[in-house]
Nucleic acid binder design. Sequence first.
DNA 1: ACCTGAACACCGTTCAAGT
DNA 2: ACCTGAACACCGTTCAAGT
Lengths: 185, 185
Amino acid sequence: MATRDGKTLLTRDDWTRAALDAIAAGGAGSVAVDRLATTLGASRGSFYWHFKDRAELIDAALERWERENTTDLLPELEAVEDPRERLRVLLKTVYEQPTDAIELTLASAGDDPVAGPAFARVTALRMDAVKRIFLDLGLPPEEAADRAWLAYALYIGHHQLGRNPAVAERRPETLDRIMELLAAR
Amino acid sequence: MATRDGKTLLTRDDWTRAALDAIAAGGAGSVAVDRLATTLGASRGSFYWHFKDRAELIDAALERWERENTTDLLPELEAVEDPRERLRVLLKTVYEQPTDAIELTLASAGDDPVAGPAFARVTALRMDAVKRIFLDLGLPPEEAADRAWLAYALYIGHHQLGRNPAVAERRPETLDRIMELLAAR
DNA sequence: ACCTGAACACCGTTCAAGT
DNA sequence: ACCTGAACACCGTTCAAGT
């Protein structure tokens, strides 16, 4: 770790980690170069040596999250042989975990030039995994694709709805019935 | 219409309409008092005579949208007697209409102090209407509530996913199969 | 009653100058 | 190679002063 006058020099990674914390705490909108600089004990100017601009910082942060939360996790799920069980594990995990703020940032990203591409990559990987479940259940490809869309839209919508306390009260206590419906032949 | 030195005096409504346009064009984040003032040919200071702050402006804009897009529209849907047909009409409308930018802003609002309450109100009204469809189809209340959650989460997720061009390509061409699944006994 | 204009704070971005 | 500090633009908010 390089230093100067007893001060630790900052790395690109330091800024990225700080940005990811900020996103988790308050969404992409709350990433402020100014605030991060103060937190890290550097000047705003310093930031621009490591990154082209604010967008590049957010992109780097989301890429890191993507690796840790999707690319590295999917193989674990795919290891579950029985497709019905795989669906159950997936829904349960999704349902029980508190809503991840970064997940929501991505979901709201749409065609945003910064977060949009990250959202598209993550969604493609996951929706394929869900479709495979339905294929393994014996459904024809078209039907499997439809249900993957339904299931993934449910996932996104579920977390979006859960964010609002008043709305969250309407959430079913158990996903059993929904799970049955999704897996129906 | 009051004037002074040949200039039209602005009303609260003028600011609200301008804000709604801005939200539709770029989400709530793109509502800038500064820009609106320039557009309307007034100073920023003038704005603060009509509104307490920026949040109050956005709230007023969303309330207007809410009236025009939910409160006034639901009775029309409820007029459809046959619940199966009512579901079909609802899904078709939702599916065919291009994604409304304000709809997305609301969906991403979560527990945001400004847009959150508007989101909660709209969601409650609509989810009740969807639940009534399933009740009318003869499902028990619990089951009807579950499916209303599923259907509404699908709605939210569908539009969220559709925003991203790469993701939107995976959208099923027809909702027929999903409609069948949702309406299944 | 409604508006202006100056002031202050916050933040993104650039850049010459420092070590 | 990495950082500072000043500069500029953009924007939210306040407020004394104007009509």
